[in-house]
Amino acid sequence: MVLMEAKLRVERASKIYAGKSGPVHALDDISLDVAEGELVTILGPSGCGKTTLLWAISGLHALTGGRITLDGTEVDGPRPQQTGMIFQDANLLPWRNLRQNIEFPFEIKRKPVDRARVDALLQQTGLTEFVHSMPRELSGGMQQRASIVRALAQNPEVLLLDEPFGALDAFTRDEMNLLLLRLWQESGQTIVFVTHNISEAIFLADRVVVLTPRPGRLAHIYDIELPRPRTIEMTFEPGFIELVQDMKRTVETGGPAVLEVE
């Protein structure tokens, strides 16, 4: 790792939920640094606490142990001025049309709508002509693009994505990944992206953080050396496929010795 002031620092994060059938150990002693402008993906099977970790970073969930700092100060609640969140299944409000959904965060923050920025993002995502549509009239991919516009319109420094393309078909997923990379290359946010899709995790990332399930522990952190801009063709190369297989083994076996990040 290049020695750099971490934008986001997760220090020995643990989380235990008081579940109905006894406590659920979701996260166990996870430490992680994310540099400014870095794109880190968190990879793991269902139930490994990926979402919990992301919600803790966003300030929506408290940790049971450890702490998370953003720009050196502890995250103790949502930081709407700094952090933007993209959820599973787009999470649009079904009673609002696309434009009203995109303007929702402005309303909550009681800020005037940044028309120029919203329109530019709509243009880039190809949604301009659908602004008056209701969410249920749109495909899953379009809904998720709208939710990306909703988050990026706030110009967040840190963008957190929680399995955003998990419900989409493979073709739409590729298209969305390319769109995300293009938008990221232009604006340079720090991105933490949670996924259970190995190929997606490698394709997007500077680094892939692999977690093991129950409790979520750090298995390994992979540095991804693929050049940018990335293309779908890269995912067909032998090196890429080997890496996918290696990560699959890491997820299954708990992985090689934990690589300390410091």
């Binding site: 409000l93 929702f104 909550i108 706030q154």
Partner: peptide, 27 residues
């Protein structure tokens, strides 16, 4: 939960949550 989390992530107050999430959901 997801919609409340969405509003909270943008710093919504309890009243905003009621007015913009809970009430439309109940309407």
């Amino acid at each position: 939960l997801a919609k409340i989390a969405l509003a909270r992530s943008y710093g919504a107050s309890t009243f905003q949550i009621f007015r913009k999430i809970r009430f439309p959901l109940a309407l």
